[in-house]
Design a protein around this nucleic acid. Sequence first.
DNA 1: CGTAACCTTGAGTAATGTCAAGACTGGTGG
DNA 2: CCACCAGTCTTGACATTACTCAAGGTTACG
Lengths: 242, 242
Amino acid sequence: MTDTLQRLLVKLKRRSRFDAADEAALLGLPFTVKTLEPGHYLVRQGERADFTCVLLEGFAYRQKIVGDGGRQIIALQVPGDAVELQNSLLKIADHSVQALTAITMARIPRVDLLDIAARCPAIAHAFWLDTLVDGSIAWEWIANIGRRDAQMRLAHLLCECAVRLEVVNAASGDSDTLPMTQEQIGDALGLTPVHVNRMLKLLELDGLIARRARTIVILDAVRLRSVADFQSAYLHLNLLED
Amino acid sequence: MTDTLQRLLVKLKRRSRFDAADEAALLGLPFTVKTLEPGHYLVRQGERADFTCVLLEGFAYRQKIVGDGGRQIIALQVPGDAVELQNSLLKIADHSVQALTAITMARIPRVDLLDIAARCPAIAHAFWLDTLVDGSIAWEWIANIGRRDAQMRLAHLLCECAVRLEVVNAASGDSDTLPMTQEQIGDALGLTPVHVNRMLKLLELDGLIARRARTIVILDAVRLRSVADFQSAYLHLNLLED
DNA sequence: CGTAACCTTGAGTAATGTCAAGACTGGTGG
DNA sequence: CCACCAGTCTTGACATTACTCAAGGTTACG
């Protein structure tokens, strides 16, 4: 169907302006839809990636395995994200992408993506901006992991997830929630699962969050943000208005 | 003079192919040359950046200040890098860029850069790739800070700097070296300067590096890389051949 | 030759990791 | 419907890494 890629279009339009021809070209991209179970790989480190995947439903994360076997989650991806721009354009994947939940995605051949970028400057610009924002998020993660203590780090991640999910949920009408295990949270923050557990308990005792049936609910977003030193500027959500 | 932007061209051509028109357009970009003393700002967090700066000589770094006053260096920039793509296209700078050494740079108005990207798909693609590589480096830094201990982290940074400097020095014929203080190294690695000092001593005792007059010399690159768990794939230096 | 910035080192402290055991949860098959 | 099982969560005791504070040494530069 023609509106499968709508989600990608909606996302890109949050930061770029398209004319009718651009929109038609984007929605006209060839693709195949695939579904994946939790834990399955979209791409493995070291592989050649000839497709770009647009996440339609569900969540994914990027990860690197370091020498001693440790894992670091380096990014989270939500529906609408084009998760394989990086690995696809850089050809040899320098990290893996894995499904966090069950996902559906649209796979677009690299050549078609490059072709549309060459023909439609506005679309090329939109993808470029998207990449810049991903970089901006990565830099914030560096600051988060490098210079904040465990409690702030965790609070910051919770704030980021809340904001990004809000945007996605608003776009889709759903109200998804991110079902990460404490081990995964730890791997995203450079902490051990045990310590994540303790910090969650701390945040809960402070009345900032609640935990029910393995999902985390933010009770006091204002205070959580101040604990986390969280400012959403780095997500560049309102680029059109700047 | 017309070859001031040569350095940028050389860098982009490492990863993209241009025809004569593309090269002429790039070299024809309007710019003004500026010099900056060590420690001076190219852009400050929160400011609006209307220029993109191409580093011609010297080094710079990007940094974020977190809530409690701590500083995290999130990226290093070497000659040839277009250091303000991010802040310039995202309009409001979400981090600062500061001169590490005395630098000279070419400032290109944002509108001209956007214009050339819209007119020359190959150039737009080259900038996009460049941004992707910056993101790839950021992700490696996340893994480095999040999942390696202090000694590995430091060794990894030294390996990265060595490789990147080698590329730049080969391009320019110089043999620059990165004069970071131990405090700056610590801020790049999420460590305190005191601990950086101890880890340097450790690496020196192991015969991996030597220190003379405040510069670090790598004595055993092979062993240092293995200590660091360093693989240069994430720098994507050989993209044309992949 | 004096000064400021930087480096070096030691001693004590705080944050986070490690190991291990038990409790909970959700799904599966009998 | 129940029992079981694997995966996850929770907690405690202890180990280790990295941080803090502080003092003295070194280097570059005016």
